[in-house]
């Protein structure tokens, strides 16, 4: 029987890897990919705990999975909009280097 901690640890590892990817990569698309990785690791953690709590009742168990369902939808919307922004930026500057986009300031 696989202990719950194993799943959670795996999720944590994936999350950290994704975080490193966000910080290390230079192109906006790659950063985006890393963010998706982080989201997915969170999903895994949620499903794990859903399984863990399923003993306490159907609602407790299924709520975790429902949350994942919703997170998935949100990720989909976010990807759509994010990629749209990306395309728009690319049209404007012919580059997706985030260091070049140093305009989020006053």
């Amino acid at each position: 029987m696989v202990p719950t901690e194993a799943y959670v640890a795996l999720s944590g590892v994936m999350f950290s890897i994704g975080a490193v990817g966000v910080l290390t990569r230079r192109s906006a698309i790659m950063i985006f990919l890393s963010v998706e990785l982080m989201l997915n690791s969170a999903n895994l953690a949620l499903v794990t705990y859903a399984y863990q709590w399923a003993e306490a009742g159907m609602l407790a168990g299924i709520s975790g999975q429902t949350a994942v369902f919703i997170i998935l939808s949100v990720a989909a919307a976010e990807v759509a909009v994010g990629l749209g922004i990306l395309v728009a930026i690319f049209r404007n500057r012919a580059s997706t280097d985030v260091d070049a986009l140093a305009e989020v300031r006053l």
Binding site: A102, E103, V104
Partner: peptide, 11 residues
Amino acid sequence: WQSGYVRNYAL
């Protein structure tokens, strides 16, 4: 504090 570099913020 706002340098404009996104990755610094992320860090």
